[in-house]
Simulated scan of single mutants.
Amino acid sequence: MGDNTTHELDSVGVWGGGFTGGLVGGIAMGLVLHLGANQIELLGGLVPGSETALAAGWTFHLIISVLFGLLFAALASRDVVQELVETFTDYVIVGLAFGALLGLFAGGVLFPVAMAGAGVETLPLPFLPLPGMAGELVSALLFALGHLVYGLVLGAVFAAINGVTPAAVERRVPLER
């Protein structure tokens, strides 16, 4: 997809890109959260009736990731967005912005609501390598980084599924249209 061409999205690409981008982005984000500070297990602890916090955390996280991927697809496919987005890099930037906003929404609304629903007032942070405020800062930074990784991967996968390739790839492998 060069800068001077336009690309028409179809429903299979839009919803397939949203689903697949959400799933792959969720896996990438989940790895950041899990390997960084076991935050996936913490999320699983908020799922009522779960016996294995890690499995519940991954399951819940991936379901939410796919749903937000579909929301991204609905937003990214709107005419007002399509007028601004042309290149692979544009989709990645839109994905990063979506991930950043999602992180603010998740941290400021979704996570507190889930904590209230689970009857948890404060989160135990025994999984952090650093105690106290330093540990909380590491946790917050990993949470933010995870959402940016999610958005980056989501935007890139959505673009690729919809036939928008990075300019460097297109220069090396011209596609017949």
Rank of each mutant, 00 (worst) to 15 (best):
L175V: 13
F72E: 03
W58H: 07
A116M: 07
V149P: 09
T6W: 03
G151V: 04
H34W: 04
L123K: 02
M1I: 04
N38V: 08
N162S: 15
G108T: 12
G30C: 10
D3E: 14
R172Y: 06
L125W: 00
L9G: 00
T89D: 14
M29E: 00
F143H: 02
G22S: 12
L71P: 06
A56W: 10
L75K: 05
A76G: 07
G21T: 07
T122G: 12
L84R: 14
G45M: 15
T165H: 14
N38C: 08
H34E: 15
F88Q: 10
T59V: 08
L31G: 10
S50C: 13
T5Y: 15
G146N: 12
V157F: 04
V120K: 05
L130W: 10
A53I: 02
F68C: 06
R78K: 12
L142A: 08
M133E: 15
L130P: 07
V173N: 09
G16E: 04
L43W: 03
W15Y: 15
V66A: 06
A168L: 10
A56E: 00
V47A: 11
V80W: 14
F60S: 12
F127N: 12
R171W: 10
A28M: 05
M1C: 05
G99M: 06
L154N: 02
F88A: 08
G2R: 14
A37K: 05
L96A: 15
V80R: 08
R172L: 05
L43G: 01
F105N: 02
A56M: 11
V138E: 13
F68P: 02
P112K: 10
H147C: 04
R172V: 06
H61P: 05
L123D: 06
A114T: 02
S65I: 03
N38L: 13
V66D: 05
V120E: 10
L110R: 07
L123V: 06
F88S: 06
M133D: 13
E8T: 14
L175H: 13
F72W: 11
D10T: 00
G95R: 02
L154E: 03
V66P: 06
E41F: 01
G107N: 11
A100L: 15
G99F: 11
